[in-house]
Simulated scan of single mutants.
Amino acid sequence: MTLRSPVPPRDLTTSLPIGPVRAGRAAADEAAALLAGDPADLFRRLLTDQESEAALLAARQVLNGFLAEDEQDTDRTPDAAGASPAPGCDADAIAAYVLSARARIVPAITALTGADVDPEARDAVLRQRAPLTLLGACWLDTVSQAATQPAVIVNELFGHHITLTGEGTWDKGATARHRQALVQQGVHLPDVAAAAFLDAAAARPLTALHGAFRLALSRLPTSYLPEVIGVHYAVHAIGVDDLLLGTEPMLREQAVRDVPVLLPPARGGQPDRRRRPAAAAGRDAARGATGGRTHRTPHRAGHLAVRTVPGREGRRDRGEARATRRPPAPVRTPRRPPALGMAGR
């Protein structure tokens, strides 16, 4: 007689299998037009549209555009200081890279927070950063769902989400505290979902694209769980918003590093280990809203190839029309990190 334990084994899944993307012709055309248009319109669409077929297709292309290898990137050379962590490296190597980036960023941010800084320049920096600051950790908004439960890492991430949202009291959450800090420094902005928000922040196209990346990640956390993990670690380990605003971080670096999935996964294999460094090493915090070299635009990344079948235009992303998606290319140079659920109030 074989006795079975009543306690189910721990679910150590760190990603779901990469499968085909299914879409209709009309949705593919709409997504292409959205990606080719104004980045501000892309930001607003991803912010307000959580589930339409065109929005999900656009979100995939945004993520692939940021995370794909760029053969023309000149930032990474074999002997460059702070070279990106190698694909498949362990958690300590990722942490060392991110903390090295933080050490290079801190002096630049300190120079923007001193008493002798021109008030107009400081106001411009805070406004430019605001679209990212006020989105908060939006990539965690829907990470806990039927497709990801009961994975251990998902429960850990959702625990962080509860902490960042004030454990049920929104005014005590990270986003509310950041908005209050902006107000105290004279930066008054409407709600993130307001039509005039980006104009009030004087957001540049690059800022809107970085915001679109975060929103895209929040729309597809199931398909991009390793990237969610990497962005989550990098953003909170570097802590640009807390450095700029002088607020205390609600999640410190060690707490985020202790997430089990930063260790080599028990299931998920080598692809997961390749994908996490790419997202964790993103330069969003370093260059996100204050400048830096632009990357190739999402609609030119070329990593989402959709083939449609006539008469099937109205189907959802899991519908009947055929599409194929190449697995993400090995990332040599990571893209800048990292859904509006409760974020952005």
Rank of each mutant, 00 (worst) to 15 (best):
A96L: 10
Q180K: 14
V152F: 08
P6G: 06
A111S: 14
D272M: 06
A339G: 15
P271T: 07
R287P: 00
P20W: 03
A278W: 00
E156K: 05
S84C: 11
V259M: 03
A181M: 05
A111H: 10
N64I: 00
R219W: 06
A289K: 02
E227L: 05
T333W: 12
Q270C: 03
D38C: 06
M342E: 11
L16I: 11
A279G: 08
A115N: 08
T74Q: 15
A130D: 01
T74P: 09
R307A: 11
R267T: 15
A27Y: 00
D41H: 12
T222S: 10
R273L: 14
A115T: 13
G269N: 09
R322C: 03
P334G: 06
A101R: 15
E71T: 12
A93Y: 03
A278G: 14
Q184Y: 02
E313C: 03
Y224D: 04
Q72I: 00
A280V: 07
A147I: 05
T308E: 14
R293E: 12
P338A: 12
T74G: 08
A208W: 02
R275K: 13
L263Q: 15
Q50P: 01
L132K: 00
D116W: 01
N64K: 03
A103G: 05
A195M: 03
T148G: 06
L35S: 06
G19F: 01
Q270W: 14
R252S: 09
T290I: 14
P78C: 10
P327N: 05
Q180E: 15
L67V: 01
A289F: 12
V154E: 03
D258K: 13
V228M: 05
L12T: 07
A81F: 09
L132V: 01
L126P: 00
P205Q: 08
D29N: 09
